[in-house]
Write a protein that binds this DNA or RNA. Structure first.
Lengths: 203, 203
DNA sequence: TATTGTGAAACATTTCACAGCC
DNA sequence: GGCTGTGAAATGTTTCACAATA
């Protein structure tokens, strides 16, 4: 397959999520125009993106919702379940531990980590929790591919290093500092403050 | 000022945040190259972005960290404090209520809202909490400009409508569905599942 | 000598127009 | 008739090369 731009991948991921909503409403077919409206983009871009991926719709009817979901899932490798671990079990970390939407969409949180024994003992959750000292072992044993960082900023880089050394392939960073990761590790920031800044700048 | 692309605004917001870290380390000047490294972009892009904004550095020394922070803040209107309210006081919502980083960066959470009286009574936080029935009044009284949505997906669109009707100018949506807002309201999604999907697609 | 600032070149993305199709 | 699929045009963004500068 041709290599896709980040923008395209992001849009396709959004479409993928949007199709869930359509399925719940029992909508069988959807046109590029309606998809575009639901996503805040243009019909041209939707058609181009889908055609770039090699998936195809029907003249006069649009795209088959269920089929499209399957096809996009395959093309983006979203069909296989992915295991994730969360490091940092403060308020945000524990909120993420029990975030049900992950499960629905093929992501499974299989472990939580914190450096405070105190916190580990007090936490009430279904997910197994461990000391960060056991991180390397647990990541290997449980085949964790994705690391989610929810520690205070001072500890973020350290945690990222530990996660990468343990062998995770992707990192989602909720801490407010950018961390650096080795070549080949997929990295994404979720900086809340930055999000508010972006909005403020557009006001 | 020329109008800036979303990409430029996003990068400038990141630079703005990065300068905080530099100030903490007491670094006085920084070159476009170093900035680029810290941010994962190129020195050309940094220089172009800054020059597009009309801010300027010094030959042989780079940019004055403190001055640059001030200038970027002015250009992006990030100097004035912005008041925000959070709707939905589940685990995520309450985590956001007490997210200290917001305060540091000029955003102030001045109210929380939930529809469950039960939850409102049980919550322990410094921030005043209200029933969503009082949302319109409180948004007006406290001059809330930014609405943060942290409710389950079924309620998200409804909450967005209420917030917009109450007069907020920007919305940050943590729920996993995209909501639609009237023309003129700045809107940004923070979809955790989508973030994981994006990472999985890049693996 | 090291770094900015910027016009121009290279590249990437989005939009468009329309053929093809059911 | 209404929708997709796509090559070509239009637009936007990034990279580059180099003059200017302290």
């Amino acid at each position: 397959m041709k290599d896709l731009s980040n923008n395209t991948i992001e849009r396709i991921c959004k479409i993928f999520g949007y199709l869930d909503a359509l399925q719940k409403k029992e909508i069988g077919f959807i046109s590029s125009r309606e998809l575009a409206q639901g996503l805040g983009t243009t019909e041209y871009t939707v058609r181009k993106d889908l055609s770039t991926l090699g998936v195809t719709g029907h003249t006069r009817r649009g795209y088959d919702v269920k089929l499209l979901k399957t096809q996009l899932g395959e093309k983006l490798h979203l069909t296989q379940k992915r295991k994730a671990g969360i490091v940092g079990l403060g308020r945000l970390g524990t909120a993420l531990l029990d975030y049900e939407k992950f499960k629905v969409d093929g992501f499974e949180i299989v472990a939580g980590f914190d450096c405070s024994i105190n916190k580990l003992e007090r936490i009430r959750t279904q997910i197994d929790v461990f000391s960060v000292n056991d991180l390397k072992r647990v990541v290997a044993e449980r085949h964790i591919e994705l690391g989610i960082i929810a520690v205070p900023e001072a500890a973020a880089q350290n945690v990222a290093d530990t996660l990468c050394a343990a062998g995770v392939k992707g990192i989602l960073n909720f801490s407010p500092v950018k961390v650096t990761v080795p070549e080949g590790i997929v990295y994404l920031d979720m900086d809340f403050t930055n999000a508010l800044r972006f909005i403020a700048a557009r006001l």
